[in-house]
Nucleic acid binder design. Structure first.
Lengths: 118, 118
DNA sequence: CTGCATCCTCTTTGATACTG
DNA sequence: CAGTATCAAAGAGGATGCAG
């Protein structure tokens, strides 16, 4: 059934696309690709992300069932984030996008230069 | 060569991912998938986009070589936008993402309900 | 270590009015 | 029709301080 239509204003699938496309979501999911990571480990791998944004992004991902959060009652606390099955299924299309971005970057850069020159 | 790394702060590929992931880019590219469209036609197909944002998005896409812009010197003016080859190549990963969004929407919605209930 | 709360700033976006 | 210009509003994001 193709009931979902991102081109409609209030369709949930549009919100989903918005979330996926936000500044950090794709990158956070990417870091978790190879296995579970602690909060600070994720932070370290994504250059430029603030603690606030990382927290916020992880919370949103958890809420949407894309990431699981496990707290170990230790001192100091240890919190581990991991891709859920759903989250893993999203990685595939995201990886395709990243691949496109990295392989076609030169084309885009060239187009930009040409456009700016004119 | 894998010189491009979106996880680095100032890498152009990160900017590219940012652009792709903005609120409107993916949708605009999507409307152009089936062929060239006039400005007003694109606007009509994307519910909720303002004229300003559509202009801005189209300008950015044109600059990056993803979309071509053709002006016909008529009265009233007619301006036609069309996917470039590069733009078309981007549609594939984008389509995969849209497919994911529409097919997994129920899972996400359910996860949300469960999270909010707790 | 993990993360919440607050304050503050900058960017993004929308509404509106005007032009070739 | 296809924009440009301007203004105001909203939200994202960063910095800092505090807590479990």
């Amino acid at each position: 059934m193709d009931a979902w239509n991102p081109y409609a204003k209030d369709c949930p699938s549009r919100q989903l696309l918005d979330r996926i496309g936000d500044r950090w979501t794709a990158l956070v999911l990417g870091t978790l690709e190879d296995g579970p990571l602690r909060f600070s480990e994720v932070a370290r791998r994504i250059e430029g992300i603030s603690q606030k944004m990382l927290t916020q992004t992880l919370r949103a991902l958890e809420r949407d069932g894309l990431v699981t959060r496990t707290v170990y009652a230790e001192v100091p606390p240890r919190v581990v984030y991991e891709l859920s099955d759903l989250g893993r299924s999203l990685r595939e299309p995201l990886r395709a996008l990243e691949t496109w971005a990295t392989t076609h970057m030169p084309d885009v850069l060239e187009a930009r230069q040409q456009a700016d020159a004119a």
